[in-house]
Nucleic acid binder design. Structure first.
Lengths: 169, 169
DNA sequence: ATATGAATGTAATATCATAACACGTCAAGA
DNA sequence: TCTTGACGTGTTATGATATTACATTCATAT
């Protein structure tokens, strides 16, 4: 799916693992996210925007309570629903992903593209990258079909070592 | 991997979704599990065996606290570690699987085969089936390799409708 | 028989998530 | 203009999942 605004995830699929201008990367995503929200009528309120900014600070997944702590320190509400609601909103809008294995959330690097990536999670540095998963999902679909099962949603998450962390300590 | 003892999962890959003699199915797994434990020197204690039996009662995933409640009712300890320890043991031995999406555990239908299945979870009846995932993992490996990531473990879980639940209500 | 390590029991606590309700804002329609 | 209703936020309370730490018991091999 080609698109106008810069999409860091498409420009560099291995973005999370590569050294890059992260300030630019995250502002690109934010700009796209705002545009998306406009277009879809979703309301990008201060809490929601701030949560997305916090998630964008690095390519890691954050727990809801970590986000909450940040919000509270900045004068937003300090009860769990404040964080969960904003996170749920972002996930629904395709601006963030939930990583089931980690019970945590990460900003999406392909905002608005209706994709369903596989997640690659480095067990040393905790970086989370989105890998293209079309062939993976195709294979999964075949396996499911053979058993008469119809897939509605699926999560594909891998734990391992990112390029940087593979080098000897 | 061919094997001597009956392995319900291999005999019928779509086992969980098909009507079958479940008493036989679960006793087959239990027999294989015992044999495995013998062979590997692992100790199949009463709590552990009982937890496996409970998981084998049907092809669903159970939360640790559900298991715990059953254990407590039968005179075992009634604190969470009792259930978690037994469940962790079974997972380590390859006799049960943890389903991340559900924060729950299901008995393995291929005990002792060192496999890494994809899980197909029916959102209506909650049945969990293990699907062969070799091609899926291969595709995932390719995607990861392209990004320089080395996979150590991965979880592939799909939510959808099983054959029975696809029929109109 | 006894030393050893493994397994179990228990208390306490940490971590993740949701339900329910009150309040404020803002825009659409009476 | 007033009102109503949807939505977002704040807060309390609670529920659900998981772990740490330590004491005790049990199995096994000397």
């Amino acid at each position: 799916m080609p698109h106008d605004h810069a999409c860091p995830g498409c420009a560099a699929p291995d973005l999370a693992f590569a050294t890059h201008d992260h300030a630019l990367c995250s502002s690109d995503v934010l700009i796209r996210a705002e545009a998306m929200a406009q277009a879809s009528g979703a309301r990008m309120t201060p809490v929601r925007r701030r949560v997305l900014e916090i998630l964008l600070e690095d390519h890691r997944a954050m727990g809801a309570y970590d986000v909450l702590q940040r919000l509270a320190a900045e004068g937003f509400g300090n009860q769990p629903p404040v964080a969960y609601r904003a996170l749920d909103f972002l996930v629904e809008q395709g601006l963030a992903h939930r990583i089931a294995r980690l019970n945590a959330f990460a900003a999406c690097m392909h905002p608005g593209e209706a994709h369903a990536p596989a997640f690659l999670i480095c067990r040393l540095c905790s970086t989370v990258a989105e890998a293209p998963a079309v062939p993976v999902r195709a294979a999964l679909g075949v396996a499911a079909e053979a058993m008469g099962f119809v897939i509605e949603r699926s999560s594909i998450e891998a734990l391992g070592l990112c390029p940087a962390c593979q080098r000897p300590a």
